[in-house]
């Protein structure tokens, strides 16, 4: 190992550091969904409301089983309660970044955070 490091020149360490910076920059660029501006709430496949994240509020969304409660607080959103049996969407907790989605399948309610520009994914291109 020492023998290998001996052959690495000072500029090579610089190149490695620049490489690390490039990787981190790319990761921030491509993995950060960006800040979300608003939340799209859908019920039974139809758009229910698109709400800005700037006001804290609670929204009652009627689904096929009952009412799902969507809570917006400090530019975050979560499903506060849901009539579904397994409560996956409630346990998902707060969503912050654009592109994050919580689905309450039994009640057919979904919330999706969207940013200023929409990103595509393999499900919705």
């Amino acid at each position: 190992m020492k023998a290998v490091i001996r052959h690495i020149k000072p500029g090579d360490w610089l190149t490695m550091c620049i490489g690390c910076i490039v990787v981190v920059t790319l990761a921030l660029e491509f993995w950060n969904g960006g800040l979300a501006d608003s939340v799209v709430i859908k019920s039974r496949g139809k758009l229910f409301r698109e709400v800005s994240l700037s006001h804290n509020q609670r929204i009652e969304v009627p689904g096929s089983m009952g009412i799902s409660l969507v809570a917006i607080e400090n530019r975050r959103v979560r499903i506060a309660s849901d009539p579904g049996p397994r409560q996956y969407c409630v346990r998902q907790g707060w969503l912050k970044q654009a592109g994050e989605i919580a689905l309450c399948l039994p009640n057919q309610v979904s919330v999706e955070l969207v940013g200023s520009h929409r990103r595509y994914d393999s499900l919705s291109y």
């Binding site: 020149k9 090579d12 490489g19």
Partner: peptide, 18 residues
């Protein structure tokens, strides 16, 4: 063409890989 005193095959390899 990077100065050989400071940059060796490691730099070339990283640049080529990117």
């Amino acid at each position: 063409h990077l100065p050989g005193r400071w940059f060796g095959p490691v730099s070339q390899s990283i640049i080529a890989a990117f």
